[in-house]
Computed example of a mutant assay.
Amino acid sequence: MSMTCLVRPLLRSLLLGGLVACAAGAQAQIKIGVVSSSTGPIALVGIPQKNTVPLLPTRAGGQTIEYISLDDASDPTASVSAIKKLINEEKVDALIGPSGSPNAMGVIQFVAEAGVPMFAPVGTAAVVLPMTEQKKWVFKTTQNDDLIAAALVQHMGRTGVKTLGFIGTADPYGDNWHKVLEGLAGKAGIRMVSAERFQRQDTSLTAQSLKTLAARPDAVLIAAPGSSSVLPQTTLHDQGYKGKVYQTHGAALPDFLKLGGKKVEGTILAASAMLVLDQVPDSHPTRKIAASYVAAYEKLHGSKPATFGANVFDAGLLLQAAIPVALKSGKPGTPAFRSALRDAVEQIRELPATQGVYNLSAADHSGFDERGRELITVKNGQWTLLK
Score class of each variant (00 low, 15 high):
residue 137 W to D: 01
residue 165 G to N: 06
residue 50 K to D: 08
residue 123 G to K: 06
residue 56 L to R: 15
residue 51 N to G: 07
residue 127 V to E: 04
residue 73 A to Y: 12
residue 63 Q to I: 15
residue 77 T to N: 10
residue 122 V to C: 10
residue 127 V to R: 07
residue 96 I to V: 11
residue 100 G to I: 05
residue 85 K to I: 05
residue 77 T to W: 00
residue 167 I to C: 04
residue 93 D to L: 08
residue 163 T to D: 09
residue 101 S to T: 01
residue 112 A to Q: 09
residue 116 V to M: 10
residue 118 M to P: 01
residue 51 N to D: 11
residue 143 Q to Y: 03
residue 95 L to T: 01
residue 162 K to Q: 09
residue 167 I to E: 03
residue 150 A to F: 03
residue 118 M to I: 14
residue 50 K to V: 01
residue 74 S to I: 13
residue 114 A to L: 05
residue 133 E to C: 11
residue 92 V to P: 00
residue 136 K to H: 07
residue 163 T to F: 03
residue 128 V to M: 11
residue 42 I to N: 02
residue 89 E to D: 07
residue 150 A to H: 06
residue 116 V to H: 06
residue 161 V to S: 04
residue 89 E to S: 02
residue 43 A to G: 13
residue 129 L to V: 07
residue 38 S to E: 11
residue 42 I to G: 00
residue 64 T to C: 12
residue 77 T to Y: 04
residue 40 G to E: 10
residue 64 T to D: 04
residue 104 A to H: 01
residue 115 G to I: 07
residue 162 K to A: 14
residue 134 Q to C: 08
residue 88 N to A: 12
residue 103 N to S: 12
residue 143 Q to K: 15
residue 161 V to A: 13
residue 45 V to L: 15
residue 88 N to P: 00
residue 148 I to D: 00
residue 129 L to D: 00
residue 100 G to T: 06
residue 60 A to M: 04
residue 129 L to A: 05
residue 116 V to K: 06
residue 94 A to R: 10
residue 38 S to M: 09
residue 163 T to G: 15
residue 68 I to Q: 07
residue 126 A to R: 15
residue 163 T to Y: 02
residue 71 D to R: 14
residue 74 S to L: 11
residue 102 P to W: 05
residue 80 V to T: 04
residue 153 V to L: 13
residue 81 S to V: 07
residue 93 D to R: 08
residue 92 V to F: 02
residue 46 G to N: 11
residue 86 L to Q: 04
residue 48 P to S: 14
residue 38 S to K: 15
residue 164 L to W: 13
residue 167 I to P: 01
residue 77 T to S: 13
residue 75 D to S: 08
residue 112 A to F: 02
residue 128 V to N: 06
residue 165 G to V: 03
residue 140 K to Y: 00
residue 50 K to S: 05
residue 148 I to Y: 07
residue 97 G to N: 01
residue 72 D to F: 04
residue 57 P to C: 09
residue 72 D to E: 07
residue 56 L to T: 10
residue 115 G to P: 00
residue 154 Q to F: 15
residue 92 V to L: 11
residue 168 G to I: 07
residue 61 G to Q: 07
residue 138 V to Y: 00
residue 85 K to R: 15
residue 60 A to K: 10
residue 102 P to C: 11
residue 109 Q to S: 12
residue 124 T to I: 13
residue 160 G to V: 08
residue 61 G to C: 10
residue 103 N to C: 10
residue 81 S to W: 02
residue 87 I to C: 01
residue 165 G to I: 04
residue 45 V to Q: 12
residue 162 K to E: 11
residue 168 G to A: 12
residue 39 T to R: 13
residue 83 I to H: 06
residue 86 L to C: 07
residue 54 P to W: 15
residue 85 K to P: 00
residue 53 V to T: 08
residue 147 L to N: 01
residue 84 K to W: 00
residue 57 P to M: 13
residue 106 G to S: 14
residue 78 A to T: 08
residue 68 I to K: 14
residue 151 A to C: 03
residue 134 Q to D: 10
residue 113 E to D: 11
residue 48 P to W: 12
residue 74 S to C: 05
residue 116 V to T: 05
residue 55 L to I: 06
residue 109 Q to L: 11
residue 75 D to E: 12
residue 165 G to T: 03
residue 140 K to A: 02
residue 128 V to W: 06
residue 145 D to T: 02
residue 132 T to G: 04
residue 123 G to R: 12
